[in-house]
Design a binder for these strands. Structure first.
Lengths: 203, 203
DNA sequence: ATTTCGAAAATGGTCTGACCACTAATCGAA
DNA sequence: TTCGATTAGTGGTCAGACCATTTTCGAAAT
């Protein structure tokens, strides 16, 4: 490494990798150079390269496949998120906080959609009742409909965390009701109904 | 390692370390066993131990001091912000998206506080006008007052992102106005005022 | 010419042992 | 007792080896 400062090698590697990704405009699913290639190109030992890669992996930014390579990761909930959560939960202890944030994010999404006259509810209406996880799939669509990808990403992340600590039990009927309220544009009642879905758990 | 499943060694090590921390009831500032000790105790190579430690370090959960050891430290969400941002921003193309999320999070915080009859505004009122970054410090306090640490962390994360792309210019006077509205419990106007702070930029 | 299958190459996963750099504890001399 | 140098302990880094898995590719069979 051109270890100019006293920064650790693996930190430098981290920066180099980030830079590489930006320059090459790599996207999710694209493959990174092999560990041995990176080792040569960045002039660092393979051990240091791996330390950097393991760190980014735990953050959920890359995915490594034995015998294949290292790939920028398409987001998959509960992969390494589980490990992450066991540590972070040391701080954010209460399950309630997690659920509350998830709830609030969803509420924001609903509020924003309801405030939009142009919103086409039909995007959500169809198919939905073949899902194994109605809640997640429903809000996945709602967040997509709203269109803010960062908000979606944050919600997705939080949802991933929640699933590691909270085996949920969904009641299909309640979501039929929620959808009905939305389709009838009874937005206030829909918001109340959404809140009621969380009331039991958040305490 | 008792590598029963196909889980990677460094992930097992991660779990073991977490378990160790819980069992020993280690607190912030306490020292972890040395890498060589962990290597023996967990029956894994030092390289694998280090991969695990580097990962937790990047998360900001531990701190390593050359020649001294590895220590637990208070979780600092900003630690990996810079790295994370460059990855997340790959997908978040528009600055507007970023600002919108920041705004929405703050709005949620205000709404929740305003809805709380018990909320003691005086926690926020004081000192504030000596700050270099009024907006950040104000909402830092507001989020702290609300008390959901996860929400605070997310907001902090997003705020960190924003600062990497948006050199802000704050107008002190506007925040005096905002605080006045809050202290007078003119909540709707306060919300409008908060929104107006973003209107120019979000487009 | 096409298909099939196995060897070889590429890649990640892990370990060992070495050496350096820094820190703190130790011990001996003033 | 005090001060300073030695020493032991610890993280930082490296080189090289071997294994497990996946892909590649060419030779053999069809």
């Amino acid at each position: 490494m051109t270890n100019q400062s006293k920064m650790k090698v693996y930190q430098e590697v981290l920066n180099q990798i980030r830079q590489f990704i930006e320059e090459q405009e790599l996207k999710d699913g694209d493959r990174l150079p092999s560990e041995r290639e990176l080792s040569e190109q960045l002039n660092a030992s393979r051990a240091s390269i791996r330390e950097a890669l393991r760190a980014i992996e735990l953050l959920g930014l890359i995915e490594t496949r034995h015998g294949e390579g290292t790939f920028l990761r398409t987001y998959k909930p509960y992969h390494s998120v589980e490990l992450l959560s066991t540590f972070v939960l040391r701080e954010v202890k209460t399950k309630g906080e997690l659920l509350e944030v998830k709830f609030l994010l969803e509420q924001v999404c609903l509020n924003q959609l309801f405030a939009d006259e142009q919103w086409d509810y039909s995007q959500v209406e169809d198919i939905l009742f073949e899902s194994n996880d109605i809640h997640t799939d429903l809000f996945l669509r709602l967040f997509e409909a709203y269109g803010n990808r960062l908000l979606l990403k944050i919600w997705h992340l939080v949802t991933g965390f929640v699933e590691t600590v909270d085996p949920k039990e969904v009641n299909q009927v309640q979501y039929e009701e929620l959808l009905k309220l939305i389709s009838q544009r009874q937005y206030n009642q829909a918001l109340d109904h959404h809140a009621s879905l969380y009331e039991k758990q958040c305490s």
